[in-house]
């Protein structure tokens, strides 16, 4: 953390906190919003913020993909589905807030938060050092030079990893997605025939 804060200019620092506050605030709004479309919209702002976090972590490619897939694709699809639902029914008429759910949510958030804090505490080596070690490791496995990485660190490294070392998990994940896709089609087909 210290490493990344030190190299940021004051302007970047302000932007960083703006993105952080925006992300957390919109994430909170997703939970408390009374109208479901407001929640969906807040979620898209939250994902926008997450992509901002990727930019601050120098993961530009991931940031762009986050925007294309989540903000531009998935949330738009969710909103598309919501727009087909009725306008009048959605104002949360199912009897106010459920205190049990609220409690469970708070407990989960607390557990996740403390475990993240504990993990951060255990990181006893600076981030830069870890990054260097990771770079060296995949330079070694895929045989690309440091000059290649300096030219295009993001896409080149990611592409080599996906098509090399992690090819099998990558393909397995794609089969999973394909199965989900076909499953959705099958379910929808049955309903229209019946």
């Amino acid at each position: 953390m210290e490493y990344s804060v030190q190299i940021m200019s004051p302007a970047a620092h302000i932007l960083f906190w703006f993105v952080m506050v925006m992300t957390v605030a919109s994430a909170a709004l997703v939970v408390v919003a009374k109208k479901i479309l407001h929640a969906a919209f807040a979620l898209s702002i939250c994902f926008l913020g997450v992509s901002g976090i990727y930019v601050f972590l120098h993961a530009d490619f991931l940031a762009a993909v986050q925007l294309i897939v989540y903000v531009g694709g998935i949330i738009v699809l969710i909103m598309f589905a919501i727009m087909f639902s009725s306008h009048t029914q959605e104002a949360g008429g199912e009897g106010g807030r459920h205190y049990l759910a609220l409690g469970a949510g708070a407990a989960t958030a607390l557990i996740v938060f403390t475990s993240v804090l504990m993990m951060v505490g255990k990181l006893n080596q600076p981030l830069a050092e870890q990054n260097n070690r990771a770079y060296e490791a995949y330079q070694h496995t895929v045989g690309i030079t440091a000059a290649d990485l300096a030219a295009e660190p993001q896409r080149l490294g990611l592409g080599h990893m996906l098509m090399g070392e992690y090819l099998l998990p990558f393909e397995v994940a794609s089969i999973l997605v394909l199965a989900a896709l076909l499953g959705a089609v099958v379910i929808v087909r049955k309903e229209t025939k019946g």
Partner: peptide, 17 residues
Amino acid sequence: VGVGFLWILAVASLSAY
């Protein structure tokens, strides 16, 4: 930027909003 026209795709997808 390094992501090139992926940036355009990413931003253009926002205009649906």
